[in-house]
Amino acid sequence: MSEASPAKAYALHLGVIALLFALSFVLPAYHHGLLARIMVLAVFAMGYNMLFGYVGLLSLGHAMFFSAGLYGAGLTVYHFGWSVPAAFAAGLACGALLALAIGLLALRTSGVAFMIVTMMFAQVFYLVILYFAAWTGGDQGLVVPQPARILVLGSASLDLTNPTVRYMSALALFSIVLLVTLAIVRSRYGRVLVAIRENEGRTKMLGYDTFSNKLAAVVVSGAICAASGAAYALLFGYVGSSFASVQYSILPLLWVLLGGIATTLGPLIGTLFMYYVVDVTSGYTSAYLLIVGIALILLVLFFPKGILGTIRQRWLGWLP
């Protein structure tokens, strides 16, 4: 990770972005739509990976950060008629502030206690959404109407319900977060985060205030997840409480484990893989979860560090 082959790493990441851009013009409509959704959710996974992969903090409550973005953007558009950029900023701010508050409390614990505390906060968040059903639509959720999802930039206006605009917006968000993540993990700060994961006590004895560093990582992670949630509300127009349920705290964990923990591109690979396994198998049988389960077991057996993690370990040591 130190200063080995930065050019290679950036070239690879730009190559992936270019490939996703090119795919927009060749994919059939169905896969085009699916890939847009996968890119937005891969951002969620990248935010999760920031904390889980690099700092080694396993949270079971990240659904609350995703849905803080989802509702922060969705409710401001729906109830107050905010513009798309303002709503996105609101979602991002909600996620970052929530992460700061949760981080201050949850980081007093570690290990299993941290998992439980984050999960409990996320359940509280979920129940709060259901409780304020008059505003949030409860378990029905809200559909953001099409006219509210038009991004006005000067004299131009972009309709986010248009498939190509939606795909390109998702790609733009994905690219920014990917490059920001890459820059963070290659920075001095990224090195400190990894050191905390490897041995927190030793890191303190090198002069680092590990609590502040971890808190900053929770906020960055929460903000990235909220960006994903806000984009989801604005691009796909659905704001629902199921996104705050515990299932959506487990999914990013699975995506990251599958793709490769503490790899920058792993979250994309994991999300893509999981979506397509479900997509393909559910076309053949209603018992598709059985096949998904078997696929997961095979991966754990043969790719214990995730797809990219194993590739890095065996062949490409320079992967960030």
Binding site: S2, R188, G201, Y208
Partner: peptide, 21 residues
């Protein structure tokens, strides 16, 4: 208690960047 999974370089980079900061 060196950081066993990091390179020797990264182990020393941590204290060096601390004094720079």
């Amino acid at each position: 208690s060196v950081f066993a999974n990091l390179t020797a370089y990264d182990n020393v980079a941590l204290p060096v960047q601390r004094t720079l900061t």
